[in-house]
Design a protein around this nucleic acid. Structure first.
Length: 332
DNA sequence: ATGGTTTTTACTGCGTC
DNA sequence: GACGCGGTAAAAACCAT
């Protein structure tokens, strides 16, 4: 009866569980007042009843979605109740500029039975469509939002990021819009920055290079926008961990799961010997994968890893020789 | 702006298939 | 001889001050 959808985070389930990020206990207590704090920024969590979402008041991170059944309430006893109790409809979403509420006039010149309209009617529909369109994107902010959310969706799909992250990115963009951070910056760069931020907050980071490949603006533009919104919205993000890139890179290279764990061990070893402080986490991930591949006799060249990670061979060499030195029983 | 650090680019020499 | 690898110098990029 209720929407028991498996949840968008499923596409993420292949990742090894790092720690209990989700707080499943809140499901049971089910109180609207939750005293938890955001795992990202320790901000206060609040429940948005209209969306059934738990979001962080500080950074806009969506913790949990769809706790409210959006299904209908079938309780109309008298005629006067007609329509009032029925709350049928799709759930609200932040990912459409009008939160998914508006209707659109179809582009086909057909009536409800699928028959073609007379030419007179066609004229009329054309005019109506024009006004309908103007109405739906009434002012510039709505238009901006529409554009941005479309872009966020497109880029998130290209990077196969789950829905929760798109939601977070959408919330972030709304905040930048509400705080008037947009003037002077392109919508594209802001939208890209929001997505980048959202992915980092959810600990499934995509590198700046990866974002740059799907964005319509270049790296510098949106990384400037990113720093800007971090400052203005007071977001404090931890630096990304090399571990967060391991799973994606190993699977892109068709390596077995075993290699993944080996790479993580190497990173841990490196951490203990302080050889990876101040280094690019993406470079470290690439190096640990290369090193792990050597241990496990995988057939791989530095060039191939450099290719999928966008890290130069030189850097891979440097980082992985660091890692080997940290390993007391390395092969050579 | 500046200086320190990291990463990239370009190039060289060595061993192997 | 092409390829993978290790190294180096210089340029570029990045970051804090």
């Amino acid at each position: 009866m209720s929407h028991s959808n498996p949840g968008p985070s499923d596409s993420d389930s292949t990742r090894p569980v790092k720690s209990a990020r989700q707080t499943p206990s809140t499901e049971e207590t089910d109180a609207d007042q939750t005293t938890d704090t955001c795992p990202e920024c320790d901000g206060r969590l609040q429940v948005d009843p209209s969306h059934g979402e738990t979001i962080c008041a500080e950074c806009g991170l969506v913790i949990q979605r769809d706790r409210i059944d959006h299904g209908p309430e079938w309780r109309e006893f008298e005629d006067t109740d007609a329509g009032e109790k029925s709350r049928v409809g799709a759930p609200l979403t932040n990912r459409q500029h009008d939160q998914g509420l508006s209707t659109t006039i179809d582009w086909q010149d057909k009536d409800a039975y699928g028959k073609s309209l007379s030419s007179r009617q066609r004229q009329k529909m054309k005019r109506l469509r024009t006004w309908d369109e103007r109405f739906r994107t009434r002012d510039s902010k709505e238009r901006t939002l529409k554009h941005a959310l479309g872009e966020i969706d497109r880029m998130a799909s290209a990077l196969s990021l789950p829905d929760t992250i798109r939601e977070t990115a959408s919330v972030l963009f709304r905040r930048t819009l509400d705080d008037d951070l947009l003037p002077g910056r392109s919508i594209e760069s802001m939208a890209t920055a929001c997505l980048y931020t959202a992915a980092r907050q959810a600990e499934v980071p995509r590198s700046l290079d990866e974002l740059a490949e799907v964005s319509r603006v270049d790296k510098h533009e949106f990384s400037r926008a990113y720093r800007y919104i971090c400052r203005e919205l007071g977001l404090e993000l931890e630096p990304t961990q090399p571990d967060d890139y391991i799973q994606r890179f190993t699977s892109a290279l068709d390596f077995p799961h075993e290699l993944e764990t080996r790479a993580r061990e190497l990173l841990e070893l490196g951490r203990e010997h302080d050889v990876n402080v101040g280094k690019n986490p993406v470079g470290l991930a690439a190096a640990s994968i290369y090193a792990a591949a050597l241990y496990l006799d995988e057939d791989i060249t530095q060039a191939e890893i450099a290719d999928v990670t966008n890290i130069s061979e030189v850097t891979i060499r440097k980082r992985y020789s660091d890692l080997l030195e940290a390993d007391p029983n390395h092969p050579r």
